[in-house]
Simulated scan of single mutants.
Amino acid sequence: MQRLQLYGRRITPKLTAHSAYHVHWHLDHKGFFNQKALFEFSELILCKSPVEALTWWCQGYTNVAAIMGFSGFSEEHLSILRSSLVRLIYFAFGTSRPELDEVYRIAHLLADSSIEVRLVLFPQGLDGNRFASTVSDPDKALSRVLKDALMLPERTGGNHDC
């Protein structure tokens, strides 16, 4: 088996001021985690990491894929998306300023395609994994945030710096 990318998440509190909670090892191939979902579904939940994607998968959402880190979206990802069956993407990256900036950047890149973009808003700045671990019924809670996802305008240019 050839490994194309690896991802790790610290499960204990930071040990030093500069410890990283998320670690991504990228090799030559970028692609998506669970890339086959892009060619099986017209609606896709796109996450920033495989752990996030697996959180959705465990609740029955198999139409989920991930990139390796919220800033890991490349021209290769764009090309794969444009050739896929996907016509609606739910971005489930999280709501930190850098994550939101990246969602808007990707939405801008997709503006000329026929792919609609929505933003999943998790409460209190949580990501999907942390959100699902704080609620008593993760399936119901994830379903609710998906249903309430914010539709982004077709053209996300204008005053926003992408």
Rank of each mutant, 00 (worst) to 15 (best):
M1E: 06
M1R: 14
R3Q: 13
L4M: 15
Q5R: 12
Q5P: 10
L6C: 14
L6A: 15
Y7H: 14
G8E: 13
G8Q: 13
G8R: 13
R9F: 12
R9E: 13
R10E: 06
I11D: 15
I11W: 15
T12F: 10
T12M: 08
T12G: 02
P13H: 09
L15F: 11
A17R: 15
H18S: 14
H18P: 03
H18Q: 15
H18A: 12
A20K: 15
A20F: 15
A20M: 13
A20W: 14
A20C: 14
Y21P: 12
H22R: 13
H24N: 11
W25G: 15
H29V: 11
F32T: 13
F33M: 12
N34E: 10
N34P: 13
K36A: 09
F39P: 11
F39N: 13
S42R: 10
L44D: 06
L44A: 08
I45S: 05
I45W: 09
C47D: 09
C47W: 01
S49I: 06
V51Y: 04
E52K: 07
E52V: 03
L54V: 08
L54F: 06
L54E: 09
W56V: 03
W57F: 09
W57K: 11
Q59E: 03
G60Y: 02
Y61R: 02
Y61T: 01
Y61P: 00
Y61L: 03
T62G: 01
T62V: 07
N63Y: 00
A65M: 02
A65N: 03
A65H: 02
G69D: 00
F73W: 02
F73I: 04
E75F: 00
E76H: 00
H77D: 02
L78P: 00
S79V: 00
I80C: 02
R82F: 04
L85F: 07
R87Y: 15
R87A: 14
I89T: 07
F91L: 07
A92Q: 05
A92S: 13
T95G: 14
R97M: 09
P98T: 04
P98E: 06
L100T: 11
L100V: 14
E102P: 01
E102G: 08
Y104T: 09
A107R: 07
A107W: 03
H108N: 05
L109W: 15
L110T: 08
L110S: 06
A111S: 10
D112A: 10
S113G: 08
S114C: 12
E116N: 12
E116D: 15
L119G: 08
L119V: 10
V120L: 08
F122N: 11
P123W: 07
Q124M: 10
D127M: 10
D127K: 13
R130S: 10
R130H: 12
S136R: 04
S136M: 02
S136K: 05
D137I: 01
P138V: 02
P138Q: 01
P138N: 03
D139P: 01
L142P: 04
L142A: 05
S143F: 01
S143L: 04
R144P: 02
R144I: 02
V145Q: 05
L146F: 07
K147L: 11
M151Y: 03
L152N: 00
P153L: 06
R155T: 12
G158S: 04
G158F: 06
N159G: 00
D161K: 08
D161N: 05
D161M: 06
C162Y: 14
C162Q: 11
